[in-house]
Design a binder for these strands. Structure first.
Lengths: 110, 110
DNA sequence: TGCATATGTCAGAAATACCTGACATATGCA
DNA sequence: TGCATATGTCAGGTATTTCTGACATATGCA
């Protein structure tokens, strides 16, 4: 593994964040083209903004991306989003090591 | 990566198979204790058999486990299930390389 | 002022995923 | 024969996730 995965819940959150075609495309796009603002990214990936927001939220909670507001040259507020590099070697062994610290119990929000 | 992941859909299927606490525990249990038959595994992981079947189906479709019927010493039919070792290094780069071969389009069953 | 661009949030619908309880069948053993 | 163990499948319900359309607000520019 690598990226500060402390508990089984962290691993699960990462896996769940990745288990969706739109989110894989979002990560792929950011990986290839670097930082992009929300509307730009929505066009790049081909989905609506509201939907993109939903997916960005999950990616952010999993620690896969990061975002912040910034002013563009022409004075518009842009939410810039970029990747937070990660590197996890998925294997039965890794999973065995993290399974014990799996909380479960349906408690979502934080 | 490693395990014969050919397309983005394969990657997505693997990630989706892992994105569930029960399934992580199933993989962990099989990784630790080796081959187990269904009823045994259900007790080990602490879930009902019908539910276990559902999860095993997803794991099998993702190529993470394998199973077959075998006779026990006392003549009972047992479905033995075991892990098919895998080893995938998840990273933005890997995802960028697989994102193009993502089918999506809601077509499930095979 | 009117149009284009951007952010951010909702309610409610549609689609999936997840789970339980019940049922049917088969073997070994007391 | 009756009990325990095992496999395998279903209908039906609940819970989550995913997605759309509408709204409100702000800036720059013609």
């Amino acid at each position: 593994m690598s990226n500060a995965l402390a508990t089984g819940d962290d691993l699960l959150r990462l896996l769940a964040a990745m288990a969706n075609p739109h989110r894989l495309r979002i990560v792929a796009a950011l990986s290839r083209y670097g930082v992009r603002h929300v509307s730009d990214l929505a066009r790049l990936v081909g989905i609506s903004r509201p939907l993109l927001y939903l997916h960005l939220e999950k990616l952010e909670q999993a620690g896969v991306i990061h975002s912040h507001l910034a002013l563009s040259d022409d004075g518009k507020a842009l939410r810039q989003v970029g990747i937070l590099p990660f590197h996890v070697t998925l294997s039965p062994d890794l999973i065995a090591r993290f399974a014990d610290t799996l909380t479960d119990f349906k408690e979502k929000k934080g």
